[in-house]
């Protein structure tokens, strides 16, 4: 149990998807705690505010692409400039319903992103990534 990653951060502007995905994560018992953020800005703010509290920082981020104001790619631009204390222990995967070839290519090319997951979130797929990377 001690190897189980503790915290996952969900960043998504879609309330329904936040609800569905946090429920799926809770039911599949893959994380101990879920941090819910309704925008990229909210996510960044949380990370910055808790830079000195390692125990509150996420081990994993599931990031949506299509969001108003700051989209997933913009979030990643800010994210990579954050302190190493935050980014070193945290992995980012994109979770999106996109079928846009450009979006998919950009996500795959981004060095911060370990994987592009397609909605709906499949617990088995998520588990496979966690087993591989964490």
């Amino acid at each position: 149990m001690s190897t189980k990653p503790k915290k996952v951060m969900l960043i998504d502007d879609n309330e329904v998807d936040l609800k569905i995905n946090s429920k799926i994560i809770t039911l599949s018992n893959l994380f101990e705690d879920i941090i819910i953020c309704h925008s990229g800005e909210e996510g960044l703010l949380y990370l910055k505010n808790h830079v000195d509290q390692q125990e509150l920082l996420p081990d994993f981020i599931l990031l949506d692409i299509q969001m108003p104001e700051m989209d997933g790619f913009e979030f990643l631009e800010f994210y990579k400039r954050l302190s190493n204390d935050i980014t070193d222990k945290c992995l980012v995967a994109i979770l999106s319903s996109t079928l846009d070839f450009g979006d998919i290519q950009r996500a795959e090319a981004n060095p911060q992103v370990i994987r592009l997951l397609k909605k709906p979130l499949m617990p088995a797929e998520l588990k496979e990534i966690l087993d591989k990377y964490i």
């Binding site: 879609n14 329904v16 998807d17 569905i20 995905n21 429920k23 799926i24 039911l27 599949s28 299509q66 319903s97 909605k119 709906p120 979130l121 499949m122 617990p123």
Partner: peptide, 15 residues
């Protein structure tokens, strides 16, 4: 996007 949300709900129902 809403369609995919629906598919997500069906997955939850299964779980």
């Amino acid at each position: 996007a809403p369609l995919v949300s629906t598919m997500g709900i069906v997955n939850l129902v299964k779980m």
